[in-house]
Write a protein that binds this DNA or RNA. Structure first.
Ligand SMILES: [Mn+2]
Ligand SMILES: [Mn+2]
Ligand SMILES: [Zn+2]
Ligand SMILES: [Zn+2]
Lengths: 129, 129
DNA sequence: TTCAAAATGATAATCATTATCATTATTGCG
DNA sequence: CGCAATAATGATAATGATTATCATTTTGAA
């Protein structure tokens, strides 16, 4: 059975305490700064375990995986390629259209990831001008 | 200026000759089997250069990047988590809804990637008997 | 309390991709 | 055509994220 350890609890608490999308290293550093140093390997394992248990969620970016709270409704992301800001959005119609397209092809969807890249509002302004 | 080399030409030809989504290693091996061995570093650089030139496109998967022909209309993907099959689909409505959602948030979209994971038709069957 | 199963942490190993750098090829020009 | 200068190649080292090892410690059921 899965054991509730202080390390896993610390990781989960840290993630649930904010709306950030954390990568393993940021989490390890932050935990360390909070007087709860946890081995980096344990952080990776803890994140995987917590995600498998449905307690946290993740998005797979080009170079690394980022984790966030799971107590929010499903949503997708827009990532600013200038400042790195990650914005969230939810669109029921897009979700249902995805499923219908899959169904047409006999594809059984178990998960999906939609990410838009571009410039966030702030970065769009400084842009031209 | 960008030079037209035999290596880049070979990479481009190989990609344009099929509908596959190649990773760098598969391409290097295939080129080698075809009597056109190319250093792996050159394959990586060639792929990046060809993509920057708009001659090929790519999708970023969890572990690696895969490249495909660019002479097809824009489309997104459905990936079978059992057999690895990559299917394509295009849906104008989903595309436009994405842009409208971004616009609402003042986000300027420069690119996006939508991937659905699940079971392809063939794998869905063997699934539950 | 007892102990087997599971988790941790330090560290080595993977794997895809990029960086180095000496050598070679391409291309505009005379 | 023949020549640099400029870019590309290729072998290989380096990176960076993530996983594998394995000895040691912790957890939780009985
Ligand atoms: Mn999110
Ligand atoms: Mn495709
Ligand atoms: Zn921004
Ligand atoms: Zn399949």
């Amino acid at each position: 059975m899965i054991k509730l350890t202080a390390q896993r609890q610390a990781i989960l608490d840290m993630i649930n305490a904010s709306d950030r999308h954390w990568d393993a290293d940021e989490l390890a550093r932050s935990l360390s700064d909070n007087g709860q140093p946890i081995g980096i390997a344990t952080v990776y394992r803890g994140l995987a375990t917590l995600e498998a248990a449905g307690l946290i969620e993740s998005i797979q970016l080009a170079d690394k995986k980022r984790y966030e709270r799971a107590d929010k409704a499903h949503h997708d992301h827009m990532i600013c390629t200038v400042c790195g800001d990650i914005e969230e959005f939810a669109h029921a119609k897009i979700e249902s259209l995805q499923l219908s397209v899959a169904a047409e092809k006999g594809f059984t969807v178990t998960g999906h990831q939609l990410v838009m890249f571009g410039l966030c509002e702030r970065c769009s302004q400084g842009e031209q001008k």
